[in-house]
Each structure stands twice: as C-alpha cells, then as structure tokens.
C-alpha cells in the first residue's frame, strides 16, 4: 500500500515537473494541476494510510488512535479549494496574455531561434 502511494505520488509529481518546464501556457496549467494532486496526496499521506477508518466519531468516549488523522484532511480540503481558485486565476491570465501578446508562450513572446 505504502509503496503504491509513494510511486504514484512520484510519477504524478514527475509528470508535473516535466510539464511546468515546457514552454506553452497550457502545458504549465496542466503541470500545476498534476503537481497539486501529488502534493495534496503527499500532505494527506502525512497522516499515514488508514483503510475504513474515517474520522467520524460516533460517541465522545472513543479511542483516538483508531481513527484516520483529521488534521491533514482538513488542510488538504482547504488546499483543494484554494487550488481551484488559483487554477481559475491562472487560466484567466493565460487567455488574457494570449489575447494581449498574441502568443501562448510562457514569456509572452515566441523564442527567437
């Protein structure tokens, strides 16, 4: 289980790195999306892996070691929503820059070569 999660995070993150180093704005935005999946999963995994132990407490007298860690979950939930907002902002800047400069290169101009 651990190995699967670790490899997945690595692959998705690597694909994200490759994409954000590309010259086109659309590649950048997809790269950022992939990276945010990987990073969210990574932060989430900091609470370790729990199967069928959601942090929903039926009564007050429970044993906290028997539940998944709610703290990284709350943080990641925030991160997902903020990630959506930044993606939206980036998208608008992307199409705005394309309209303004006529190019979809990340620097706003085609490379000189």
């Amino acid at each position: 289980m651990e190995l699967v999660v670790a490899i997945s995070v690595g692959v998705v993150f690597g694909a994200g790195i490759w994409l954000i180093l590309r010259p086109r704005t659309f590649q950048l935005i997809t790269g950022l999306m992939l990276m945010s999946y990987a990073v969210n999963l990574f932060i989430f995994a900091m609470g370790r892996l729990w199967v069928n132990r959601p942090p929903i407490t039926p009564d007050p007298g429970i044993d906290p070691t028997q539940f998944a860690d709610p703290l990284p979950q709350a943080l990641v939930l925030t991160a997902i929503v903020i990630g959506f907002a930044t993606t939206a902002l980036y998208l608008v800047i992307m199409i705005g820059a394309r309209g303004l400069t006529g190019s979809d290169h990340v620097d706003g101009e085609e490379p000189r070569e």
Partner: peptide, 14 residues
C-alpha cells in the same frame, strides 16, 4: 524530482 518525491513519501510512510 519524481524519484525524490516518491522516496520521501515512502520514507515517511514506513
């Protein structure tokens, strides 16, 4: 980068 991230995740998880 991917390898580093995978190694880090695995190291934490174990």
């Amino acid at each position: 980068g991917g390898l580093a991230m995978a190694a880090l995740t695995y190291a934490v998880l174990i």
